[in-house]
């Protein structure tokens, strides 16, 4: 059993007083919170905000970090996920960043966290009403792949002109025989705005629908944020004769034996021996701890 199986207790770090609480200054955090209020008021609408330089490169989660910094309170418990895992580089460094600059408690346990910053996954463990998910978004504009002009895409959103979204799905079916878009699968939020839930796999799309937790999305490079408030209808786009479906695996997790979770494929040797394990390390570890593993 590897080290990740035992959730380490994460003692509350002492805050580095050289920084303002959670790194950003208070005016910036207020500006982002104003943007967030607007985003929550108009579900799925992309609100521009004055993105700041963060001490790590674009593409590493600067958008999500600014949102987390803006909503973080001293009593919050933070969890950071990268590709479903709590112990990968991005997750470790962002968690350590907030432990140092805000002195908040951090955790790997999904039910204990009040704020979960994530890249790629929504936890398998069901979220509850006191939690906030913060997503790191690379490209917030779902229409971008077909319409390069920003003025034009904004007009299309404003006029509810979303015909082109189905052109992409049509292309998928024409080329592959089924809708092959596997991640960043476009959704309609509250029957109005088309939104890119990127970069989560479409496996996680159903978890957005009527979720009791607040979902916030931040794109650092593009300087856009958007939100799905709790208990909002989120539907994935599809065709009548090619309805939306999530990925399924013939295998089960090699560690915890789960049949329901999103699995990562591992290649074990040069002969191509495969093994499948849960992408959500916390979910997997909890199942093992509860003795539900059935290898």
């Amino acid at each position: 059993m590897n080290a990740a199986m035992q959730p380490r207790s994460q003692p509350r770090a002492s805050r580095d007083e050289a920084y303002n609480f959670a790194y950003l200054d208070e005016k910036t955090k207020r500006m982002i919170r104003r943007g967030l209020l607007k985003a929550v008021a108009i579900p799925g609408y992309q609100v521009p905000f004055g993105g700041r330089e963060m001490p790590l490169p674009y593409g590493w989660g600067t958008g999500g970090m600014q949102l987390t910094a803006a909503i973080l309170g001293a009593e919050d418990v933070l969890k950071v996920i990268d590709q479903g895992a709590d112990d990968t580089t991005n997750a470790v460094s962002i968690r350590r960043f907030f432990a140092r600059t805000a002195g908040v408690e951090t955790t790997e346990r999904t039910p204990e966290a009040t704020i979960i910053q994530t890249r790629h996954r929504i936890p398998e463990t069901a979220l509850h009403a006191d939690q906030i998910m913060v997503f790191q978004v690379p490209i917030p504009e779902p229409l971008r792949f077909i319409e390069p002009s920003e003025t034009e895409t904004r007009t299309m959103h404003a006029l509810n002109d979303y015909g082109v979204m189905h052109v992409k799905l049509y292309e998928d079916i024409a080329t592959f025989g089924h809708i092959a878009t596997a991640y960043a699968y476009p959704v309609t939020v509250d029957e109005r705005y088309v939104m890119d839930p990127s970069p989560i796999p479409k496996f996680d799309n159903p978890k957005l629908d009527m979720s009791p937790a607040l979902m916030l999305f931040g794109a650092g490079r593009e300087k856009r944020l958007y939100a799905v408030p709790p208990f909002t209808r989120v539907t994935s786009l599809d065709f009548e004769d090619h309805p939306f479906e999530v990925q399924k695996w013939d295998h089960h997790c090699a560690i915890c034996g789960s049949h329901e979770s999103f699995l990562d494929e591992l290649i074990l040797d040069d002969q191509g021996t495969q093994s499948f394990v849960c992408s959500d390390t916390d979910y997997c570890a909890q199942r093992v701890n509860e003795g539900r593993a059935e290898p």
Binding site: Y170, E171, I173
Partner: peptide
């Protein structure tokens, strides 16, 4: 897809 675009914009959802 080029031919179908207008129809999809008008709400045709049957491949």
């Amino acid at each position: 897809a080029n031919i179908g675009e207008r129809l999809m914009a008008q709400g045709m959802r049957n491949y």
